[in-house]
Design a protein around this nucleic acid. Structure first.
Lengths: 248, 248
DNA sequence: CGACAGGTTGACCGTTATCAAAGATCGTGG
DNA sequence: CCACGATCTTTGATAACGGTCAACCTGTCG
């Protein structure tokens, strides 16, 4: 398996010595990364250090591919710093943005447990540092510390709920509604300020919401005209009437 | 709705003494059920019997609700016999069919690991026998036999891939394509025969594919005119040109 | 036998994708 | 640090896709 050796399209297979990937450091600071990750944060200091010794941190430059559909899955990737775009290509060739990973998020686990290949693409959106844990090491950890399995189960459950909810939205709501809800949910927690910066380009947002950049542009303009939001400079948006947005 | 009686809020908490649920039997035949379930099928005979003692089998009549959105999640439901519709309601009130459970499938696990409420509805499509495993018992089992966690992780991974794929289809493909692919995939494995019976009503299919019964009807007719398929009596469909369908 | 849910068909129109072109912004290399 | 090209964004015109409403048909079940 391993994207290690032979590969027809052999991008980034060996993370340790491709010119563009300089291996960042040993276990020295990896425990910082480990402690950030929800699936490990119940462990004690000793255990975290143990885990951090199994981890390699690798730097990806903006635009670099971490893995792509068809690659064998052999590692768990945890974001220490930076952002990773996870997207899929439909049969039709159209791309759909699935999720954006930030510090503490992980990817690559799905294919790991099924011993199968990736079905999505992962690409660095900016300079990003990934903590990489090999499949075999992860399996040993799970056997040694079963509580980690519970954490991953919880995370998978969360994502599954999320994915089903997303599917239902695509299936039953129109584009305008999806956009309105997306915007409203951008200020959910930190509701102090009614302003926020779009977490991605409008092109990506279109891909995420299953529509086109043109429609995003038009609908956001409409929402502004209707008084629900206000567009400021550089992707800043002020939510004027959150309740209203949620009723669309 | 629950064809049950009282229940303003407290439906199906106690499966053993609601009038409409007659509790089927003790551990006697539950091991049959246990052995059917992929997440348990690596265990040995002894262990299966142990598990089957924790299980209660409950009978649901056609149309009965097993759980609904908002209910606390406190059990894992495994289908021994029959079919269960899992669906969601969008904010707009529209219903979307998520999945149909058959013998050996399970539901209710997602909310279990997050200690949260259900977000979907489960309803018997016909007379159905469910094996019910309480949350606390499941947790004990997972601690005692960590390998079960791996099985569930694998199952969750599979579903997550599936859910993301589904989302991508909704986001990027048009209704006609979704229908064509759905039909083509109905004969994937058992490809000996080119004929199959639709696994659900066209109304449900519409809900599953995020469209309306009218559109389903029209598009299937179009596919027939174009020579890709042939409709026979009572939901039987013959695939004439599977390759062609997949290219739509 | 009648009632009711599911299925089909037709007419209509709203939403959103598409194509095109111009304007804004970003990143890069000189 | 500026200038250039590439990419993102906006705007307009157009049309297709598919949802909705209404009527009718069909089969099923009590």
């Amino acid at each position: 398996m391993g994207s290690k050796d032979i590969h027809p399209q052999d991008h980034n297979q060996d993370h340790t010595n491709t010119s563009s990937h300089h291996h960042v450091d040993g276990a020295g600071t990896n425990d910082i990364c480990v402690s950030m990750v929800p699936i490990f944060n119940h462990l004690d200091k000793e255990q975290m250090i143990e885990i951090s010794k199994l981890i390699q941190t690798v730097r990806y430059k903006k635009g670099e591919t971490v893995y792509r559909a068809g690659d064998d899955s052999n590692s768990l990737y945890i974001v220490r710093e930076g952002r990773i775009r996870i997207y899929r290509l439909a049969e039709s060739g159209k791309e759909q943005l699935i999720r954006i990973l930030r510090s503490g998020d992980f990817a690559g686990a799905m294919a790991l447990f099924n011993e199968t290949i990736h079905e999505s693409y992962a690409e660095a959106m900016e300079e990003t540092y990934l903590c990489i844990l090999k499949r075999s090491d992860l399996h040993s950890l799970l056997e040694k510390y079963p509580a980690i399995s519970f954490k991953i189960l919880a995370e998978f459950s969360r994502r599954l709920e999320q994915a089903e909810k997303q599917t239902t939205r695509f299936a039953t709501e129109k584009v305008e509604t999806r956009i309105a809800h997306f915007l409203a949910e951008c200020i959910d927690a930190k509701s102090l300020s009614q302003e926020f910066v779009l977490p991605m380009s409008k092109k990506d947002l279109a891909s995420y919401l299953g529509t086109t950049p043109e429609t995003i542009s038009r609908k956001i303009y409409e929402l502004e005209v209707l008084g629900y939001i206000k567009q400021k400079e550089h992707k800043r948006i002020e939510i004027v009437d959150r309740e209203g947005l949620l009723l669309i």
